[in-house]
Simulated assay, not measured.
Amino acid sequence: MTTSGDPVHHSPKATDGLRLRARLRYLYHGTQPNAVKFRLMVIVVDLAIIGFFIAAPILKQAGWAFYLVDAFIALILGLDLAARAYAYSDIRDWLRKPIVWVDLMVLATLLFPAWLANFGFLRLLRFWSLLNSDLFWRTIGRKFDDTRVEEVTRAAAALVTFIFVTTGFVYAYFRGKAEGINGYLDALYFTVATLSTTGFGDITLPGNWGRVISIVIMLVGITLFIRLAQTLIRPGKVRFPCPRCGLQKHDPDAVHCKACGLLLNIPDEGS
């Protein structure tokens, strides 16, 4: 039993664990050059993995070599997720994040390829989770003061992710069943033609479910495209939390908060 004034002694294992957690927090959340370089390396590796996911339908022809790379990527993603979880202060709060569940779903398709083979197209969600992660914006996005680049990037990521996830779905479930869909490029061609409502009609999905899927692709795709166009056209905003109501974004020349009317003092870009 110790009193409040007695020093707290940790076992060697506990001390090593605290040092490891402190080191991981430094790497994943720190602002020092070494931490930023580490996160840049993580982002580059992530982009390479995403490229592998995109090319996976073609690379599967390599046989056992493909599954060997698949297992290696599963190891990398598993270690990365474990490190992020350990570096986070509250694991329960970390598990509440939708991005975390997306990454866990991607990891599951890698760990259990035999059972989740038809869900391999969900791996492309990794692109969306990367460009919406705090790690990405603490590393890349910290160079941008306003939110315009962030909004455009997030909107473009959502559209690109939807295109490739839908392409993977069409390829996985309609290859050889729909006339004209014999390869990945055919599925990509159908997705883009349907999303843009061009509708050449040379490739169509069979049955009522095929029509329903085509309608969903058109509706969701147009919505994401309009969202991207709006972020490109509408005036940019700056991130300046209102002290009274907490509204995060305002027009660069705003004098009053448009939500509560409080007088603001937004710094000029040159100041």
Rank of each mutant, 00 (worst) to 15 (best):
L125E: 04
R19Y: 12
R123W: 06
K97Q: 14
H10D: 11
L124V: 14
A193H: 12
K237A: 15
W64A: 15
K143F: 12
P235G: 08
C260Q: 01
R227P: 00
F169W: 09
F190K: 01
C242P: 15
L59W: 14
L95Q: 14
K97P: 00
F72L: 14
G246I: 03
V152C: 04
R234L: 05
A229W: 05
G246Y: 08
A48C: 12
G246H: 10
Y189P: 04
A155F: 11
L131K: 06
V160E: 07
D268K: 15
L247V: 04
R154Y: 09
D70G: 11
W64V: 08
A55C: 02
F38C: 10
L205H: 07
K143A: 08
F72A: 14
R84S: 05
L77Y: 10
G246W: 10
L130Y: 06
A65R: 10
L20G: 00
S89D: 15
I266C: 13
I91K: 12
L247K: 12
L122A: 06
I222T: 15
D134I: 02
P243E: 03
S271M: 13
V149R: 02
I213P: 03
P243I: 01
G183T: 07
Y28Q: 01
G210Q: 07
K13G: 02
P241L: 11
L107Y: 05
A55E: 04
I266W: 12
A22P: 01
Y26W: 11
H9I: 13
T166D: 00
E179F: 05
C257W: 08
G5P: 02
A155K: 07
A229E: 03
Q32Y: 14
C245H: 04
Y28L: 07
M218L: 12
W64Q: 12
P7E: 03
V170M: 13
R19K: 15
L205E: 05
L59H: 14
F53W: 03
I140D: 09
L110N: 01
I140V: 15
V36E: 08
R234P: 03
A56F: 07
C260W: 02
T194G: 01
S89V: 10
L263W: 07
R234G: 00
G201S: 07
R138I: 04
R92P: 00
G246M: 13
G221R: 04
W128N: 06
W101N: 14
N132L: 02
G207M: 09
T161W: 09
A35W: 02
A156E: 05
A259Q: 15
I73N: 06
T109K: 04
F52T: 04
A172I: 08
Q61G: 13
L81I: 13
